[in-house]
Each structure stands twice: as C-alpha cells, then as structure tokens.
Design a protein around this nucleic acid. Structure first.
Length: 679
DNA sequence: GTAGGGTTAG
C-alpha cells in the first residue's frame, strides 16, 4: 500500500513533466499493468497530460472508460477540448457536466466562459456566468477575469464594468482588460480615468497597460497626453519592444506628427509588417500619399510582403491623389493573394469613387457578400461626392430595408449628398427623421451640414437664424458654411457678418482665409481683401501651394501652380493660350477677382491661366487621344474662375473633364458642370 | 490582457 502511494506520487510528477504522447503512453501502460489506471486523480492527470499534447480523442476515450468521473476528470476533459481549439465541444461538455449533477468549480467556469469568448457567444456566456454567481463564484478572480474578457470582446463594456466593480480582487490583468476594452470601444477618456484609479489603488501599470494607454492617446488625438505617456514609459523604464514602438509611432502619426513617427521607425532595431503598415498609414492619413506609396515599395525591397492592412493604407493614398491605376493593381493583387474582406472592399469602393470611377465602386458594392454600416456609409458618401443625391437616398432606403442601422456618419454623408444636389427639403426632412425616428442626437457636423444645405440652396437668412437658435455652441465650420452660401448667392450683408465672425474665430487653415478673401473680392471690398492678407500674415499662415495631378498612361503627373519647371511647359502654355482665345469668342471672361494679389489686370489673367488644374488639363489634352475623358485631382478647392473656365474648355477641347478637388467632384461636359456653384 | 486597416465637413 505504501509502495503504491509512492509509485502514485512518482507517476503523477512524471506525468506533469511529459512533453509528448509517447512518454505519456509509456506511463499509461505502466498504470494499466499495475492495475491502478482507475484511480480518479491519476486518470484526471492522465487526461490532462494528453490534453496538453492536443490528443483530444485519447483524452475522451480515457474519460469514457472511467467508472467514476469526479470534477477533476471533467475539468481535464474541458481543458483538453479547450486546448484542442474546439470551443463548441467545451460548451457542450460544460452543459453535460451540469446535467450529470457535477457542480462546476472555478476552473470549469473559466474554461467554459473562455470558449464562449472565442465564439463571441454572448448568450451562453451570460448563462454560464449566471450559474457561476449562483454557485458562489461571483467574485472569484479567475472567473471574473474570464467573464470580463468575454464582455469586453463582445463590446459589452457596461456589463464588463459592472463585473469589474464587483470583483473582490483586481490584478494587472483585469485592469488591463478593462482599460484596453474601453480604448477599443472608443472610450479613450474613460480608459485614462481607469488608469488613474488603478494607480490610486496602488497598482503599477505594466507593458500591456502602457500599450493600451498609447492607443488611447492615438484615438483622442491629445498630443500633450501622448507625450506624457511616452515620457512615463521612458522614465519608468518599461521594456520597449516592437509592439510598444509600433504603437508609439502610430500614436504620433495619428496626432499629425509624422516626422516623429518616422524617426521612431528609423531607429527601430526590429521591424515587421505591422510597423511598416503603421508608418504607411501615418503618411497616407497625413496627406503624404507619395511617401506612403514609396514606403510600400521600400517595404517589399526589405523582404516584407504587404498584407491586406498595409494595402488598405496604400489604397487610401491612391484615393488622395487619384492614382487609379495603382488602385486597380492593388485590387487585382488582393483578389489573387488574399480574400477580399469587408474592410478591403470598403477601401476599394472608396478608392474607385474618389478616383472618379463611380461605376466600379457601385459594381463592387453590389458584389460584396456582407455589408456593415461603414460599407453602406461609404457608398452613400460616394454618390454624394459625385453630386448624385437622389441615388444616395435610394441606397439609404435599401440600407434601411436590409435592416442595417444608420449611424451619425450615415446622416452626415446623406445630408452632405442632399446639400450638393440641391435637395433642400429632403435634407431638412432627413435631419428631423434622424432625431425623431433614429434617435440620433445631432452633432456639430450635422448642424453644419444643415446650415450648408440651406445656405447653398439660397436660404441664407434661415441658415443664419439656425446658427443662432442651436443650443449647442457651433464652431467656425458653421460660419464658413454660411459664408460660402453668401458668396454663391451674392448675399453681401449677411456675408459680411459671417466673414467677420470667421476671422474672429481665428481659422487655423489657410484655405478659410482664402474663402474670406474671395468673399470680400466678390463684394468688391478691396480694403478688406488687403486686411485679410495682413491678418493671415500676422497669424503666420502661409497659403498652401495648389497642385493638381493628372493620370496619363498609368503614370501620375503633378503640376504646381505656375509650374514652369515641367519639360513641356512651353507647349502646355501654348495650348492654354489657344484655348483661351477660342473660349473668349464663346463669351468667357476672366474673373480676376479670384486673384488676391494686388497686381495689374493682365498679370492677374496670366496668373489664372497658370492655375495648376489648367496646366494639368492642358497636359492631358496634349498627351491623350482626342475625346479621352480627363481626370484631374487637386489638393485645394477649384477657384471660381477655373470653375467657369473649365466649362468653356470642355466645349473647345471637346472633352469630358472631371476635376476632383479637396471636397468633391466637378463633371464638366459640353459647357456645363454637374454642380452649379464652385465652392 | 499584446501594436497597424475601411465611411463623415466647410
């Protein structure tokens, strides 16, 4: 008997050390020959050992052969299925166990809930959690952590928080689960609060917590906070591995500090696909499309195959500069190499629409097998930027029919589409419906869209009243929208008020100063034009140089304003002069008020002729066959004179000309444009 | 508990 006890102890520890099936089966054989294989504790140990090596079938067979099954053997089998990556079997087994009258313990609950988490099976998870509470495991740290993780992964943050608050003891893991969960559900501010609470409770964060905090800073775009988190990591000497470095660079990029991001990247000793794509995404989102695409090439020459995430960022870069050839190539590459998931599909649809190919965008949208709200929003916005408000509305109706729930972005896109298509009444109707039927509280952007809708439709007075009536404080954007309407409809009185208000609010972007200046020029108030220029100068605001890009034969050709460096400049200029001659015969008159410098009239005419979009168009005419549609992408807004001039160009050059500016598409054909107003 | 990706404005 004593001998057997010793043997048992010995065998148990040997089992614990077994690394492969062969050595386990040797011990198994010893057990059978010594006639002690039916010992409960030992059998459970045996099942657990097989589980460790992933031999679920042997574990199950052993379990089936047992005459008596205690909690240990049930748990061992649960773990076997959990290790074998069969979550549905785990849940099944858990149910069988309950039916067999076995009272699950901390470990059974933990494993079962983990299985629900991997299946995102919230219903079963809740049921098991309820059972755990009834059995007195409601404040168990292991069960608590796993159910916390379940709710976090399923996006049920409020439920997660209530579990967390009920836990008797919280460790770094449970804190980091909560903090990371809050970040992931877009509640970065609360995540920071929880971190402070954790510190107050005397717990130090670790690398994982720091990672979550970096992400939080990336989300809220709070550079000060970002720097302090970075400082904290350095000061406290947290280990800085690839992941931390990647999230740091991502954080700086998302805060607009792409140079710092690049600096971190260049000093990294170890890089991977994730860090490359974080950098590419950083450049793409900050408007440096060229650098982003160069990095994509550099990444490949360093031996890293781009995955779908890096390609999505590359697609974003293509959208920005209208590089449809590369966009199409990426499409082909993704289809050949990976499956086209919803995110890639959305990025592609957005790329096609922004590169002027609404029909490709539409076709791809119809082919997508599943559609979420972002995908619906993308196609609605695509119709919107192409000035097809009615079609955007049709898609919206389809979306409702498909039982997708519109969100605040849906309505922002829809209202903007209505606005650009002059659908004023429809826009007002859907603004009200958003609040009443869809219970979405309007945010500033929705009010701005509504103001834009009214002002663009000529109902400037109503738009002004709306700004005053809205209970929440509206920022500069609302006044800019009003001002644009005033320019389009020559409402100088309200316009002057709006212009002053805009200047008062100190715009931080040079484009808005240009708008104000354009307004005063339209009102022929030249002193004010000069004043705006002075204000701009004292604010240290430099006008962003305009550039346009034309894609000819699959290559991008960029033109800066007054770009005399182009090898074909002489020929381009000749085409422009010839065209202008014929345009004048048809009634074109230069709107020199759009030149904001105080120079002679003929200089103004020459300056307008040298606007980048015109250089790009002339280049396109020079390099493509007659009748080919031209697509030009411009970084700023098209000016009022170019808007008028390109209408005439479409006649004299007999071309369809599509200009995508910083905001929308202008389709010029036979002397008219798809949009009546230029701004 | 562990980094990177898609939609929205003037």
């Amino acid at each position: 008997m004593l001998l057997q006890k010793w043997v048992l102890k010995d065998l148990k520890s040997s089992l614990l050390n077994c690394k492969n099936t062969l050595s386990i089966s040797k011990i198994h054989a010893v057990l059978i020959t010594s006639g002690i294989s039916n010992n409960g504790a030992l059998a459970a140990q045996l099942i657990a050992s097989y589980a460790r090596t992933g031999d679920v079938n042997i574990a199950q067979k052993l379990f089936d052969d047992l005459p008596k099954r205690g909690i240990d053997s049930w748990n061992a089998l649960l773990i076997a299925y959990s290790r074998g990556n069969s979550p549905p079997e785990v849940i099944n087994l858990y149910r069988k166990m309950s039916l067999a009258g076995i009272r699950p313990d901390s470990s059974s609950f933990t494993v079962a809930i983990k299985a629900c988490t991997s299946l995102l099976d919230l219903k079963s998870g809740r049921e098991i959690w309820k059972h755990a509470v009834e059995c007195g495991y409601g404040s168990d740290i292991f069960v608590g952590s796993s159910v916390l993780n379940l709710f976090v992964k399923c996006g049920e943050m409020d439920e997660a928080m209530s579990v967390f608050d009920g836990m008797s003891r919280r460790d770094v893991v449970s804190w980091s689960t909560v903090i990371a969960g809050l970040v992931r559900s877009g509640r970065a501010g609360e995540a920071m609060d929880e971190y402070r609470r954790m510190q107050r409770e005397g717990l130090e964060g670790d690398g994982v917590v720091m990672l979550a905090l970096i992400q939080a800073c990336a989300d809220v775009e709070d550079l000060k906070m970002a720097c302090s988190v970075h400082g904290c990591i350095v000061r406290r000497g947290f280990p800085v591995d690839v992941m931390v470095q990647t999230s740091l660079l991502d954080m700086y990029a998302k805060n607009g500090k792409v140079e710092i991001a690049s600096c971190i990247f260049r000093t990294m000793s170890c890089r991977n696909v994730v860090s490359w794509s974080a950098l590419i995404s950083g450049y793409a989102r900050n408007g440096h499309a060229g650098v982003a695409l160069e990095l994509l090439v550099e990444m490949q020459s360093c031996g890293f195959e781009p995955d779908s995430v890096s390609l999505v960022s590359a697609l974003l870069a293509c959208s920005h500069v209208g590089f449809s050839r590369l966009g199409r190539e990426i499409h082909g590459f993704v289809v050949r190499r990976y499956e086209l998931d919803r995110v890639v599909g959305t990025a592609l649809i957005d790329m096609y629409a922004k590169c002027g190919s609404l029909s490709h965008a539409q076709a791809l949208f119809e082919r997508m097998s599943s559609r979420d709200v972002v995908l619906w929003n993308t196609i609605i916005a695509s119709y919107g930027i192409h000035g097809q408000g009615k079609k955007a509305l049709l898609i919206f109706h389809r979306m409702i029919k498909a039982r997708a729930r519109p969100d605040h972005v849906t309505f922002a896109s829809l209202l903007s589409a209505m606005s650009h298509s002059g659908l004023v009444e429809e826009g007002q109707y859907w603004f009200d419906a958003m609040i009443k039927d869809y219970k979405i509280q309007p945010m500033e952007k929705h009010y701005v869209s509504l103001i834009d809708l009214l002002a663009r439709g000529g109902r400037v007075e109503e738009a002004r009243r709306l700004i005053e009536d809205v209970e929440c404080e509206l920022g500069i954007a609302a006044w800019v929208a009003l001002l644009s309407g005033c320019i389009n409809h020559k409402k100088f009185l309200i316009g002057e008020m709006a212009a002053k208000k805009v200047l008062e609010l100190k715009p931080d972007c040079p484009g808005i100063y240009t708008l104000v200046s354009n307004f005063f020029a339209a009102a022929r108030k030249w002193d004010e034009v000069a004043m705006v220029r002075r204000v701009m100068k004292t604010a240290g605001m430099k006008k962003v140089p305009g550039y346009s890009v034309a894609e000819v034969d699959g290559r991008l050709h960029a033109f800066l304003v007054e770009d005399k460096s182009h090898p074909l400049y002489e020929e381009i200029l000749k085409i422009l002069e010839d065209m202008e001659h014929r345009m004048r015969a048809l009634g074109y008159v230069s709107k020199t008020e759009f030149v904001l410098q105080n120079v002679k009239e003929e200089v103004k005419v020459r300056m307008l002729r040298n606007h980048s979009e015109r250089l790009a168009i002339a280049f396109g005419i020079l390099k493509t066959r007659p009748g080919t549609r031209l697509l030009i992408t411009k970084n700023l807004r098209v000016c009022g004179d170019c808007h008028e001039a390109i209408k005439f160009m479409s006649i004299v050059a007999e071309r369809e000309i599509v200009v995508r500016d910083a905001k929308r598409f202008h389709h010029f054909k036979n002397g008219s444009c798809s949009c009546s107003d230029y701004w």
